[in-house]
Amino acid sequence: MSDRRSYWNRILGEHGPGVTAFIRRRVRRAADASDLTQELYLRLLRADRAELIRNPEAYLYTVAVNLVREQAVLDRRWRHTVDAVDPPGDPALVDFRTPEEQVDLQARLAQAAELIDELPAKCQAVLILQYRDGLSYEEIASRLGVTTHAVKKYVVQGLAQCRDRLRRSKGGAR
């Protein structure tokens, strides 16, 4: 478990901001976004299945990171021409993107902080105890006096709420 966690933190630390920024920026443009999604998907389909099943989440993430690296070159080359176009948002894509194309990190984090603040106390407690204090779901469950099943439900519910809010704020800005 702790191995997994540190692995995750490492990969997030190394590549996280790049991937996030990339996805947020790219999915803004419908054509680019569907290209990216399509490419990501195709690489998954082409992947060696046994390899993919061994650690699917890391595999998916590595593929996304590789896409960032490859596309970064193209992005630099095409930035000036592509950015001049302002195509409509893509309704077919679901993600946690923000309305601005270039939302700076601070604004994004402020929004995330606001979303966490609005969450039910149970979900808040789980996220903070998990990410700040490094407790496992099991440990959190026993502190809260509920089952781990319930703990997981709080998180899924909370994320669903965040997603709704983000989508609504995006819709309002459009």
């Binding site: 996280g16 999915v27 976004a33 999604t37 998916l60 993600d95 995330a112």
Partner: peptide, 23 residues
């Protein structure tokens, strides 16, 4: 579906922010 892979990667992106804020 491509939408599944896309949603999952996007969720990872969002959770990075959540992790940062929670910490």
């Amino acid at each position: 579906s491509p939408a599944h892979a896309q949603e999952y990667v996007a969720l990872i992106g969002f959770m990075q922010d959540v992790q940062h804020v929670a910490a």
